[in-house]
């Protein structure tokens, strides 16, 4: 009945069997909290984000933090070696994680990371794309949809302009990036289902 945590936001996939469920959860929480704070600090630097109402800032971050982390930590997924490096630095093969109970989400995240990495985006392009991921007017609980929509459109225009300037002969890159948004939604939904299973367990 050994329990494993297959999320790379943990320091390790192995759980000390002597720890209580509460202790395991607290340890996990301490592991991902710094990353979440970094997402918030990133959001605060998006021009216009702080002008949104505070409830809408919270709603966007609540809904989008997982997707931002998927983009930011795509490099943890080594597609060539089929391994994942956890935040604590430990590396696991896909087969090992599968044996520990990882399901379809793992494969889907590998696919996503591979496609995103293959686009070869610069740090600036990746940052702007991440801002577009976060500022989505169709997240649940948004009060002032028009304001979020206006900021979203500004960010998308800036992303298109940057991609067009940097990749004049690769016009499909911008379209491919926008198509990553529904992929991220799908991963987010799968992740929420896994969290439910974890909490129930």
């Amino acid at each position: 009945n050994r329990m494993h945590l297959v999320c790379p936001m943990n320091t390790s996939a192995h759980v000390d069997p002597h720890k209580s469920g509460h202790e395991v959860w607290e340890e996990f929480s301490q592991s991902f909290t710094p990353a979440v704070r970094e997402v918030v600090e990133f959001a605060k630097k998006i021009p216009g984000f702080r002008d949104l109402s505070q409830p809408d800032q919270v709603s966007l971050l609540k809904a989008g933090t997982f997707e931002v982390l998927v983009v930011r930590f795509a490099s943890l997924f080594d597609v060539r070696d089929r391994t994942i490096t956890f935040l604590g630095g430990k590396k696991y093969s896909v087969d090992t994680l599968r044996a520990m109970g990882a399901g379809d989400l793992l494969n889907s995240m590998f696919d996503f990371s591979e496609k995103l990495t293959n686009l070869g985006l610069s740090e600036e392009e990746m940052s702007l794309f991440t801002a577009v991921v976060l500022v989505s007017a169709d997240r649940s609980g948004i009060e002032n949809v028009n304001s979020v929509e206006a900021l979203q459109e500004t960010l998308i225009r800036a992303l298109r302009s940057l991609i067009t300037k940097n990749h004049p002969n690769e016009s499909a890159i911008f379209t491919k990036l926008l198509l990553k948004l529904p992929d991220l939604r799908s991963l987010n939904n799968m992740h929420s289902e896994q969290l439910l299973a974890f909490k129930v367990h």
Binding site: T33, R37, K44, K62, S192, L196
Partner: peptide
């Protein structure tokens, strides 16, 4: 389970970070 962020304690972390309060999350 319509609000996984709240279940994870994310909302608490997000609110504190947004308000510039980077103290450790209190139980």
């Amino acid at each position: 389970f319509s609000d996984p962020a709240s279940n994870l304690g994310l909302e608490d972390i997000i609110r504190k970070a947004l308000m510039g309060n980077l103290e450790e999350r209190q139980e």
